[in-house]
């Protein structure tokens, strides 16, 4: 089945390519030229701060304070990074503990998010039951909720549950992030119903259908959910819910170093790079799958 799907996709792509070539008549050369010029200029402007950040991290101290500044490091070194590790090594709570906290929160939060969202999305996408549509509409409205806005009542609720100062205060709310359910449901809508019906006739239970048929067919969506979840959990400073130093996340610890003033300028630059590199790398690794999922992200009225 999967193989057949792939074949269909490949032929589709070939046809697409041919058509693309024939689509040229509506394009003028000058139009193309200006479009590309514009794109290149904007792309350079977009990437400039990022390049600058990376280069700052590679500059030795004397170059960091040099004026006028050079965009590219003259004598690139990894000193800032090794300094950072020395500082982290001497901190009161060890580096490995911070790293463990972040990895634990990210992995458990993402796994739970993936499973719970897929289960909900599956029945919402494939079965028509009373209340399902209404529930989904509420989730769409919830896409607009800003973390700060719900933070205060969230704190009260987590306090009532007795979860303040535990990992669960970060992990469990992340399970229910609306963007995950939304994307998963939209992607599952694209699965042919005949697949599921065939299995139903064979007497498979809903569980079995879910695990053996639906889940293997929505792998691109898994990756997308993982990416979004990792992005938000990795950048989570966990400062509102967690007070014990030994439960705080890596990003929190790194930002503490970053706020250490002039003497830490080099390390601060290294921190910026460490913090930004993880979400960007995960995105690059899964770009094509993410885009495949986002193709079904549209909101029908």
């Amino acid at each position: 089945m999967a193989k057949k799907n792939k074949e269909i996709k490949e032929t589709k792509q070939q046809v697409h390519k041919k058509v693309l070539k024939r689509r040229k008549p509506n394009r003028s050369i000058w139009g193309d030229f200006f479009v590309y010029l514009f794109l290149v200029l904007v792309a350079l402007a977009m990437v400039f701060p990022l390049v600058f950040a990376v280069n700052s991290a590679l500059k030795p101290l004397d170059e960091l304070f040099m004026f006028p500044p050079k965009l590219f490091a003259q004598n690139p070194t990894l000193d800032n990074f090794s300094d950072l590790f020395v500082t982290m090594g001497k901190s009161w709570v060890t580096f490995s503990r911070y790293a463990f906290n972040t990895v634990f929160i990210t992995v458990v939060g993402t796994a739970g998010h993936l499973i719970i969202c897929s289960m909900g999305a599956f029945v919402l996408a494939k079965y028509d039951f009373p209340g399902g549509k209404t529930f989904f509409n509420v989730v769409v409205v919830a896409l607009m909720f800003n973390g700060y806005v719900t933070a205060i009542p969230n704190y009260l609720i987590i306090n009532a549950l007795g979860w303040v100062d535990t990992y669960w205060a970060i992990i469990v709310p992340a399970f229910a992030a609306p963007i995950g359910l939304f994307l998963m449901k939209q992607f599952m809508e694209g699965l042919p119903m005949s697949l599921i019906e065939a299995a139903q006739i064979d007497g498979a239970s809903l569980w079995k259908i879910f695990i053996t048929i639906v889940m293997p067919n929505v792998k691109p969506a898994w990756l997308t959910l993982i990416i979004f979840s990792v992005q938000s959990l990795w950048n989570n400073r966990a400062a509102t819910f967690i007070y014990s130093e030994e439960k705080k996340t890596l990003v929190y610890a790194l930002q503490q170093i970053q706020s250490g003033g002039i003497a830490r300028t080099g390390q601060a630059a290294a921190v910026t790079v460490v913090v930004m590199i993880v979400p960007i790398i995960t995105f690059i690794l899964s770009e094509s799958q993410t885009l495949e999922t986002m193709a079904s992200s549209g909101l029908k009225e």
Binding site: G120, T150, P153, N154, L156, A176
Partner: peptide
């Protein structure tokens, strides 16, 4: 019934951390 069973984990958490906060707000 099974559909509700599948939706329940998400629905409960969603209610607790997204709907209830708005209500209490």
């Amino acid at each position: 019934k099974m559909c509700y069973f599948f939706l329940a984990p998400y629905a409960i958490l969603f209610f607790m951390f997204y709907i209830l906060p708005v209500g209490t707000s």
